[in-house]
Amino acid sequence: MNPGSGTIAPHMARRGQLSQAPPELAVTGPFLRRRQRFVECMSWHRPGSWGTVWSMVRLLQIWFGPKRFEKGGAVYEKFGVDRFSRFLPFGYWTNRLIRALGAKNFRIINDESSAKIWVVFTMVVEFCHVVAFGLFAWFMVCDLLQADYAGAAWNGLLNLLVNVYPSMVQRYNRIRILQAFKLDLKEMQQWDIQM
């Protein structure tokens, strides 16, 4: 194999696959082989391209996209997420209060453009709650290791109320918005969002 050609890498030839990495990533050492595998992994869906940004968008679509068991939101309604969401910011009672204070036509989602903005907002908020869930879980583990069972129970309860349910609310809202406006996260890159 010509080291500068980048046509077939030995580790890919064993698997019967062609290397799509550019010539500057030709196999010349173990570090470059690992780097080439990473590039090929990240660009698996667009042969011949790096596709890193595209891969990140695809990973976001997989994480934030509706799963089969979530269709319709019935699973979240069984857990009481729809009732819990009424008391959150931008929930039913907050919207009702804003309308009572004088903004009679107040709506968070007015059209498809605001629905797309709100879908992205739910993704950001869910991500923040998932990160906070990890922190609270770490605090709970630390309390358990120190035999502070009351502290662990308190952190577990707080984690449930402050992170688990709000992230479920974001998923529930996103599913309902996607269904109501017939939006698809796979087409998210083509969304024309205007603030």
Rank of each mutant, 00 (worst) to 15 (best):
R96N: 01
A100G: 14
V130H: 10
D143M: 04
W93L: 08
C128A: 15
W118E: 15
A147R: 07
D82C: 01
K78L: 13
G73F: 04
V131R: 07
L158S: 14
K67M: 04
V81Y: 01
Y92K: 11
V120R: 11
I108S: 09
V125N: 12
A150T: 12
A100N: 10
R68Q: 08
V120D: 05
E126G: 07
W93N: 11
E77Y: 00
S85C: 06
A103N: 01
W63P: 00
A153I: 07
F121V: 12
L158A: 12
R86I: 02
R96F: 11
E70I: 03
A137T: 06
A147H: 09
H129D: 02
W93I: 01
L97W: 15
F136N: 04
Y76L: 06
V131D: 10
F106S: 01
D143E: 13
L88V: 08
A100V: 07
I108F: 09
W93R: 05
K71I: 12
E112F: 03
D111P: 02
F87L: 06
Y76Q: 06
R99G: 10
V131S: 05
G65C: 07
I62S: 11
K104L: 14
Y149D: 02
L60F: 06
V120F: 12
L145Q: 08
G156R: 01
P89W: 04
P66N: 03
L158N: 12
P89D: 07
